[in-house]
Design a protein around this nucleic acid. Structure first.
Length: 137
RNA sequence: GGAGCUGGCCAGACAGUCGCCGCCACCUGGGUCCCAGGAUCGAGGCGGGGGAGGAAAGUCCGGGCUCCACAGGGCAGAGUGCCAGGUAAUGCCUGGGCGGCGCGAGCCGACGGAAAGUGCAGCAGAGAGUAGACCGCCUACGUCUCCUUCGGGAGGCCGGUAAGGGUGAAAGGGUGCGGUAAGAGCGCACCGCGCGCCUGGCAACAGUGCGUGGCACGGUAAACCCCACUCGGAGCAAGACCAAAUAGGAACCCUUUGGCGUGGCCCGCGUCGGGUUCGGGUAGGUUGCUCGAGGGCCGUGGUGACGCGGCCCCUAGAUGAAUGACUGUCCACGACAGAACCCGGCUUACCGGCCGGCUCCCCUC
């Protein structure tokens, strides 16, 4: 398989998958008109889910455009992303952004997400090495 | 050439790279079954081919399909509303009638009933629906006062008058002549209108047709209402199948009343109750799911919508939801906008371009 492919296994497929991310929501990254929630998974690769409401993007054409751009962005950056389940939410005002801006927004958000995940992993390692610290959360 | 009316068609193009969703063919390796050759299920690779719209939209109508009872009776409710035809059906389309707009091609019209009943009408205005004297016009008839050249004159009372002014969206046919004190369908002529008949037309309706009536039955029914016709309800998250989990179960027979469900109500129907016999169906998956009132061409009937016949074609089928992203080149620099069970319409949105038919005006031969 081509390393740039985006098959079904890179997507969140069931309501259960989505519920898991919303309930745990270990990571949160804000962007212009966008919000990312993420939780670690054991799949060995990231997975993407999209929540784009009619309220925030009235026209179906605009909703489709955002979904396509989000998938395209994940497809290209899948190997830089950690093993997490991502839910991308659209917020008000995304409709005014052009494709180029959206791509740059998403890439920035993926970088921050990766950084947060690395930081969290180091803390977990630290905690596991030193149980006297206890769990914070 | 300019202005306009109308019918139809198109919806940036091409190339490269990387992707997504079905389908087909081949290759690789795996599970299951009969048993040594196949069948079937799912995974990966490679190749081929297909992959949003004219409105996919609004969900406003009409159908198909599915379930509820086989959709049945009554009430209530909703819709439609000139006539005829087309159609699976319609509130759509076609043709015709009537009315209105436009020089015209054409366009527009919820276009049944107001002599079954009830209701409504602000402001203005004297008066608004068995009409009405504000200004005006008249003073013939009756009567009073005054004047008088004894003919009559002036003024008042009782009045008359819908021709003119004014008000209004609307003032109870129009024009002309006669008539009169002034007027008035008061009378007459013509026009218009009502009613009956006749003629033409399937009909709506029409007629320089015949007769009759002085003449209206004011408007409003997207006010109630009346009349005619139509309509059972829900919707693909319909419904069917396979099935982890979990339980208060499920099927057949019998049966009062009551509850619940079936469409808003009633009838009706189903179900809960008792006995006998064994299976249920949430997550998830499969299906419904695209070959259809389908397109194209030719012939044929019809003014036309459309019908009939022949040949050819197969043209998205997703389900956390595909049909895309980037780069380059070109040009008239790209609008509105994304399928979700499927069709037929309507309505709304929209950058522009192409083709056909027709009308009016100008110029030239």
């Amino acid at each position: 398989m081509s390393p740039q492919a985006f098959p079904r296994r890179l997507r969140l497929l069931t309501a259960g998958d989505y519920r898991h991310v919303f309930d745990t929501a270990a990571f949160k990254v804000h962007g212009k008109g966008l919000l990312v929630l993420a939780s670690p998974n054991a799949m060995g690769h990231p997975r993407l889910g999209l929540v784009i409401s009619k309220k925030n993007l009235r026209r179906a054409v605009d909703r489709n455009r955002l979904k396509r751009i989000a998938r395209e962005s994940v497809r290209h950056r899948q190997h830089q992303l950690p093993d997490v389940d991502i839910v991308l939410l659209a917020r008000r005002g995304v409709g005014e952004l052009d494709n180029d801006t959206l791509f740059r927004q998403l890439q920035g958000m993926w970088r921050r997400l990766a950084k947060d995940v690395r930081k969290s992993a180091r803390q977990d390692n630290h905690v596991s090495l030193d149980p006297a610290n206890g769990s914070n959360g």
